[in-house]
Design a protein around this nucleic acid. Sequence first.
DNA 1: GCTTGTTAGTTACAAAAACAACTATTACAA
DNA 2: TTGTAATAGTTGTTTTTGTAACTAACAAGC
Lengths: 161, 161
Amino acid sequence: MMSDDDDFDLTLFLPYLLNQAAEASSMQFQQFYKDRYGMLRTEWRVLFHLGLYGQMTARDIGLRAKMHKTKISRAVQKLSERRFVSRARDDEDRRVERLSLTAQGRAAYRDLYAVAQRYDAELTAGMTQGERHALRQLLVKLQDRGSTSGDRNSGKTAGRT
Amino acid sequence: MMSDDDDFDLTLFLPYLLNQAAEASSMQFQQFYKDRYGMLRTEWRVLFHLGLYGQMTARDIGLRAKMHKTKISRAVQKLSERRFVSRARDDEDRRVERLSLTAQGRAAYRDLYAVAQRYDAELTAGMTQGERHALRQLLVKLQDRGSTSGDRNSGKTAGRT
DNA sequence: GCTTGTTAGTTACAAAAACAACTATTACAA
DNA sequence: TTGTAATAGTTGTTTTTGTAACTAACAAGC
């Protein structure tokens, strides 16, 4: 047991705490989209973004979700095979594909939206209204730290803590 | 763009925010242990725990860090090969291995401890003292949600959000 | 002593992620 | 034009992870 010099507590190291909390909640929430729709995390995220923002390209999703394009490409492929997502070439720029949810995709989105809402409420059940709000605001601040310089759409997934 | 019924904002969904923040900070911090010591995240975590708590078994680490035993086994192997960690059979119970840091391991730990301290300070630079504290307390609360029932030492790593 | 069960840790194999190299298309400048 | 660079997205290969099955050591009942 080596506490070096001063009062910094490594067990309260922010990247560590964030990862622990993220893993715990993600593991639990995963159960819903996995059990009900056999989706992977990347697939749920793509569905989530398309449901939320409507039609998008893979690139758009990458920018918003900070996901790497190969992950998106493969998620879209799966979602498309399972008829949750439809893809359409853009005739203005034929490199681009415009993605959107099918009726089935929208139904899954609505379902999972409701589940997410309940789950979020459950997670924050022990908090005051003020804490809830503060937590989200602080996390929003933290999530953008780092994506400062160059290299857009690189969106590699973290080699965590 | 489909906001279903009420006022729940999926972009503020806690598992999502937590993951974004965790990924952003982990990606940045990773740079240090990766560049300087060629460590993986799991290896850094094991080092971190051994530095913090002194001698431990793989099982102990698994319980504290909620890491699966196979991850720990592999991390210990690497750390041992690179002479950061030494392993010694326990003669009371010869299934058990008592792990501890070598001099080199302690040096790396001290170095990374200091880096972590600085990095943590940098991350929370925009916050008030109260916010810092509140954030950590809330994250501590969140990290234990879920590990309720049975199956100790299962520590699967999240299939995140 | 022997069976039966449990625990610590490892290893083998399958799934998912990271990373790099690729195709197709557009942009733009000589 | 044509040649170079850039962009959207895909595919192939390598690492890392997840999962399950395994070995070795103990424990407890009989």
